[in-house]
Design a protein around this nucleic acid. Structure first.
Length: 272
DNA sequence: ATAGGGTTAG
């Protein structure tokens, strides 16, 4: 069942869910969770919460941890952090235990809203419950610090996680690069881009962020090099970059640029 | 069946 993505698909999902008995399909916690996910992905957050409150007893379905995690995500998305947090008490009263997904969802909600202190408190609660933080836990705090313009603290935290044996992944590097792009710090963007490349291939997010930054800074040399690489890997189209060259009448550079790396399909895209 | 960033698509 592909119920996700498009807004409005929750209606289809709910209709199907209602018709299941006639179709001789038994409704289970799995189909209930699929319904919750449909509401979540259609951004009908409040309905997901209401559904969890009403439907299970009406239908005799016992919600599981996935049901609660889905609704916690919905509350986080709508910014109802108190409701999200209170779901932990609710699920525990039902005899369930919050897992790493529960905590990562909550932490991402708090950290991404700049609520670092509250996030740290929840982090402590997580450890008290013997749920071991993973790379995504660390990354959510990294992004939170960056989002709150605390890039230096983010770098400190980056080092801290390495000391604790958590190997930074591409999201970790991208968070720091984003921080320094937003600060306008060219030297540090270059530094962390270099650090990233020692262990990973930049991904689409890296390229987008770094290229738009370098373009703003008029760092043509480095930008065109990176742009070529990104186009070769089919991760960006390069059209916008070339448009800028053309609009500034830097035609020679644009032509060189095209000849040196642009793929046939990208050319067709620009000059159909 | 549940948790990620970025935005260069126009």
């Amino acid at each position: 069942m592909t119920l996700y993505g498009k807004s409005g698909m929750y209606e289809q999902a709910h209709k199907l869910f209602d018709e299941m008995p006639e179709l001789k399909c038994q409704r289970t916690v799995n189909s209930f969770n699929a319904l919750l996910a449909a509401y979540l992905h259609s951004k009908k957050f409040i309905n997901a919460g209401e559904l969890l409150e009403q439907l299970p007893e009406k239908l005799g379905i016992e919600p599981d941890l996935i049901s609660y995690n889905t609704v916690i995500k919905a509350y986080c998305e709508m910014g109802s952090m108190d409701s999200a947090l209170s779901m932990v008490d609710t699920l525990e009263k039902k005899g369930l235990e919050p897992d790493i997904i529960t905590f990562n969802t909550l932490l991402d909600g708090f950290f991404s809203r700049g609520r670092i202190v509250d996030g740290d408190e929840i982090w402590g609660l997580m450890e008290k419950k013997n749920v071991v933080p993973d790379i995504r836990t660390y990354n959510s705090k990294l992004r939170g610090l960056v989002h709150g313009n605390k890039v230096l603290e983010a770098v400190e935290f980056f080092e801290e996680m390495k000391n604790e044996g958590i190997e930074p992944d591409i999201h970790s590097y991208n968070a720091l690069i984003t921080g320094y792009c937003d600060e306008g710090n060219l030297e540090q963007v270059k530094h962390w881009y270099g650090e990233l490349k020692k262990s990973y291939k930049p991904d689409r997010a890296t390229y987008c962020k770094v290229l738009s930054f370098l373009r703003k800074k008029n760092e043509f040399e480095m930008a065109s090099e990176i742009c070529k690489e990104a186009m070769d890997r089919r991760l960006i189209s390069g059209v916008t970059w070339m448009d800028k060259l053309v609009s500034e009448s830097r035609i020679e550079e644009a032509i060189q640029f095209v000849e040196s790396g642009l793929s046939r399909s990208a050319l067709k895209l620009r000059f159909p």
